[in-house]
Design a protein around this nucleic acid. Structure first.
Lengths: 147, 147
DNA sequence: GCAGATTGTTGGATATTAGAACTGTTTCTA
DNA sequence: TAGAAACAGTTCTAATATCCAACAATCTGC
């Protein structure tokens, strides 16, 4: 799919198509924004979760991230290779790994957050602040998130 | 990605993530809704375009659909195999193919349209009619469509 | 009539994902 | 307390999508 040009009519009139198109474009461009750091969106998500819950196990990360178990293995493998996170033995259950951020992981996460903020600013530039808030509210409702 | 449960916090608070999640879920579920007809979303899009511009060539379909040329070949191949469309020699340029709908293609498109309408109704059920319209307006603006 | 552009096609290289099967560990239960 | 079942993590495979470069046939402009 090409995201460099606005979608042509009559596609651009259908709410469902607009949703898909904007969503895929956002995902695609966010991935590009993250690339200079050597990260992909799942890495960013998992780093964020580890920072919020240090020492949690992989199953908890799976539950909180919508990433399936076998992909989670690959994501954490890559974070370890990059020196951003590490698996440690879980204190009370030898089946589990306690996943922690390294010092470098903390610094990289900070940089990634700045990238994400900058990206959001750029992505939602066509809308005013109140429009972004309206959009957010409608999307939450559509996603079935209780508020 | 799992779409059977609402996204967990803090992801569900980020407009960019909400956009991606809803967009991918919509695309995914629309594909599932279309599946009983033996079609995937690109087939539906291309059928719609052929119906709107009978006899157009593949390049025009590419320009109007955001599908890249080599994928377009595959889509039209499959539509021909299903007996829904056909390539005919272009009257004035032997490089081009004039793409037409068959009678069966017209009937299948009609059924697919009904599926799409039903799908939209179901997808946007959590929102009121005016909310859907607001969402549509904001997404158009975000996509850069002139209005 | 020749050079370069256009149209459709093919093949390959690549990334991404989902799923089944497997190991080691823990928990339940009779 | 032994055996069965459940669980955490991992590995491997297969299906999928996607993009890109190269190619033949044809057309257009000089």
């Amino acid at each position: 799919m090409r995201f460099d040009v606005p979608p042509p009519e009559p596609l651009a009139s259908a709410p469902g198509f607009l949703l898909s198109w904007n969503g895929q474009r956002t995902a695609h461009e966010f991935a590009a924004a993250l690339e200079p750091l050597g990260l992909r969106p799942p890495h960013f998500g998992v780093l964020t979760l580890i920072a919020a819950h240090p020492g949690c196990n992989q199953q908890q990360l799976v539950d909180r991230s919508l990433i399936d178990p076998s992909s989670m293995v690959a994501v954490i493998d890559e974070l370890e290779e990059l020196g951003l996170a590490e698996r440690r033995p879980h204190p009370s259950d030898r089946r589990k790994h306690a996943v922690h951020l390294t010092a470098r992981g903390g610094r990289t996460l900070q940089k990634a957050r700045e990238v994400a903020i900058e990206f959001a600013k750029r992505t939602f530039a066509p809308l005013s602040a109140s429009e972004v808030e309206t959009l957010r509210r409608l999307l939450r409702k559509l996603a079935g998130v209780e508020s």
